[in-house]
Design a binder for these strands. Structure first.
Lengths: 188, 188, 188, 188
DNA sequence: CATGAATGAGACTTCATTCAT
DNA sequence: AATGAATGAAGTCTCATTCAT
C-alpha cells in the first residue's frame, strides 16, 4: 500500500546477481560485496534481504532448480519421449550454460550441506519419476533393445546428464548415442 | 639420527594431507594452516616445500591423476574388456571414495584454472584412446548391439563415470546397465 | 550522541598517526598495526578508511606537502625577501622537525615510486617559481654580488635546504651564510 | 693452507651485491635472500660471512665510505681548489650514481642507528677538515667575495652536496654557481 | 664451508557480520 | 529500508635467523 516501501524485485535482483556470480566463479570465489555492488546497494543492506550468506545461497538454489523445466511429451511413445526429453536437455545445456554450471556447483555443495542435498533430492524426485515411467512403459511395450532394469536406467540417464555438464559441446551426440543404445529399431 | 632429518618425505605427507582435506571440504574450505598442522609442522614451513598454495594444489593434482590406474585387459574381447574396465572403476568408486571426490573437485576447478584443465585433459588422453580402441575393435567385430559412433560412445562412457561420482552407491548397477546396452548378446 | 558516530575525523587522526610514525621510524619501519592502535581502532578498520597501505601513504604525502607553507614577503626587496624566506625555513626546521623528516623520507621514496615523485614535483613547482622570481628581480636590480644564473641558483637553494634537513642544528647559520654570499652589500 | 677453504672474495662479492641492491631498492626493499642468490650461495651460508643483517649493512657502509675519495689539489689556490674539488664530486655524481644513492640511504639510516651515525660522522671528519682548511686559507688570503664564516661555509658546502644527490642532473651547474658565489673575481 | 629444513613473529589484506543511526 | 563504521577471525605469504648435518 505504501508507495515508498518495498522494492519488490530487490530480492530477485540479488538472487540473479548471485546466480551469475556463482556461474562465473563458482562457490570458491563467491563473495557478498560484489553482489550488493552489482545491484547498486550497500553490502550491509544485503543483509536485510538475506541475513546470512547461506540464506542467499538457499534462494539461489530455489531459483536454479525452479528454472529447470523439461517438458515431457506424454503423447509420444516411450522411446521417442526419451529422445525428445534428452534432446531438450542437450539443447538447454548450450542455451543456458549458466544454469547447468550453477546446478553442477550445487551438487558439489550438497556433499557437505545437508539442506542443499535435501532440496536437490526433493527437486529431482519429479524427474526420477518421469524417467521411471518412460522406462516402465517401454518395458511393457517391449520397446527397448534389451532387458533393462528400470532403476538403473534412470540413474544411468541422470549420471550421463550430470557428467556431460562438464562438456556441453559433446552433449548432443552423447545423448543421441545413449538413446540409440536404448532404442530397439537399430542394431542387428 | 638427528631429529631434524628423519622425515624423508614431508612433501608426500603434505600432499596426502592436502588430498584428504580437499576430499573432506572441497576447495571451498581448503586452508593451508590445517594441512601444516596435520603433518605437525609450522605453517610457514609448508611454504618451504610449496612456495604457494597453487603449487600445493598442483602437486595434489598430479598425485590424484597418477593414482587412477585402471587396467585394460587387452586379452579380452571388446565387450568383455569394457565390462571389466567399468567394473573396476565402479569398485574403485566405493573403495577409494576420496580419490573420486578429489577428481570431481578438480574437474570443477578446471573450469576456471587453465593449468588444471590442461593437466586433466592430458591425463585423460590415455583413457580416451583406450576406450576408443575398445569401440573400434568392437565395430570391426560387429560386437555391439547397434551401429554406434566411436567418439560419442567414448564421451558417453566418460560422462557416465563422471556423473556417477556423485552417487557411488549406484555406480555398479549403472555401469552394468550401460554395458548391457552396448553388448549384443542380450536383447529381446 | 551514540558511541559510534562521535569520531568526526578518524581519517585525520590516522593520517596524523601515520605521519608521526614515519617521522619516527621512516618508511622502513612503517607498519599499519601500530597506526591503528595509536588511534584506538582495530587494524582491519583502518582498511575501511584506507583500503591499502599505499593509500594511507598517499594521504600522508598530501598532508605533509600541504603543511609546508612558507610565506613570501613580496613587499621586500629580492635579497631581503630571500633572507626572510630562508630564515623562515630554518626556523621551521627546528620548530617542526617531524615535517622535514617526513618530507625527507618522501624524497627518498620518490626515487622508486613514480606517483610520489609526481606529487612532490608538482608541489615544488610553486616554490621553484617563487625562487626564480626572486633571482630574476634581483638580476634586474643588480642586487646580487655576482652575475648569477637564475635556474642554477634556484636549484642551489633547494639543494641546500634539502641537504640541511639532515642537520637542523646548523640550518640557521648555513642559510645565513648562503644569503650572505648572494647579497651585494657585504664583501671585502 | 688448505686449498679447499676460503673463498677470499665471497665477502667482497656479497658486499658488492648488497651495495647494488641498496642502490636499486633502498633499505626499504633490502632482503638477504636475493643477495645470497646473486652471489650463487644458499641464503643460510650468507650468515657464515655476516651473522646478521646489520653486519652486512655495516660492511656495505665501510665499502661505500671507503669508495669516496675526492682528491684535494693542495697545490691550487683556495678558490681553485674548492672549484676543482666540487667539480670532481659533481662528475662523480653522474659517473657513480649508485655510490651516492647508497650514501644517501645511509644518511637516512643514521638518523635511527647510532653506530651508522658514528661511522659516517667519523668518515666525514677528514672531509670537513679539508674544507675548513680551504676556507681558512682563503680568508687569510682575502680570496673570498665576502666575510664568510668558516664553519658555516663548510656546512653549506656539505648540505649542498648532500641535497643535490637527489638531482644529479643539476649537480654541475649548482656547484658551479656555488663556487661563483664564493669567488671574488666576479661580481660588480 | 655449505646446506636445507625449520621456525616464529609478523606483514598486509579480506570477509561476513553486527550495530547505531 | 538503508547505511557506514567497526570488528575479529582468518587467510596467504615473507623474512631473518638457527640448527643439525
Amino acid at each position: 500500500m505504501g508507495r515508498v516501501a518495498e522494492q519488490p524485485d530487490r530480492r530477485q535482483a540479488l538472487i540473479r546477481a548471485a546466480f551469475s556470480a556463482i556461474a562465473e566463479n563458482g562457490f570458491e570465489g563467491f563473495r557478498l560485496r560484489p553482489i550488493a555492488a552489482a545491484v547498486g546497494i550497500d553490502h550491509s543492506t544485503l543483509h536485510h534481504y538475506f541475513p546470512t550468506k547461506a540464506d542467499l545461497i538457499a534462494a539461489v538454489l530455489h531459483h536454479a532448480t525452479g528454472q529447470l523445466e523439461g517438458t515431457m511429451r506424454m503423447d509420444l511413445e516411450p522411446a521417442a519421449r526419451l529422445r525428445h526429453h534428452l534432446g531438450e536437455i542437450a539443447t538447454a545445456l548450450t542455451a543456458q550454460p549458466e544454469l547447468f554450471i550453477v546446478l553442477d556447483e550445487l551438487d558439489r555443495r550438497a556433499r557437505r550441506d545437508q539442506s542443499t542435498a535435501t532440496t536437490i533430492r526433493d527437486d529431482e524426485q519429479g524427474w526420477r519419476a518421469a524417467l521411471a515411467t518412460i522406462f516402465e512403459e517401454g518395458v511393457e511395450q517391449r520397446a527397448w533393445s534389451v532387458d533393462l532394469d528400470v532403476d538403473s536406467s534412470v540413474e544411468l540417464v541422470i549420471a550421463t546428464i550430470k557428467g556431460v555438464r562438464l562438456r556441453p559441446e559433446v552433449a548432443e551426440p552423447v545423448v543421441e548415442q545413449l538413446c540409440g543404445l536404448f532404442s530397439k529399431e537399430s542394431g542387428s
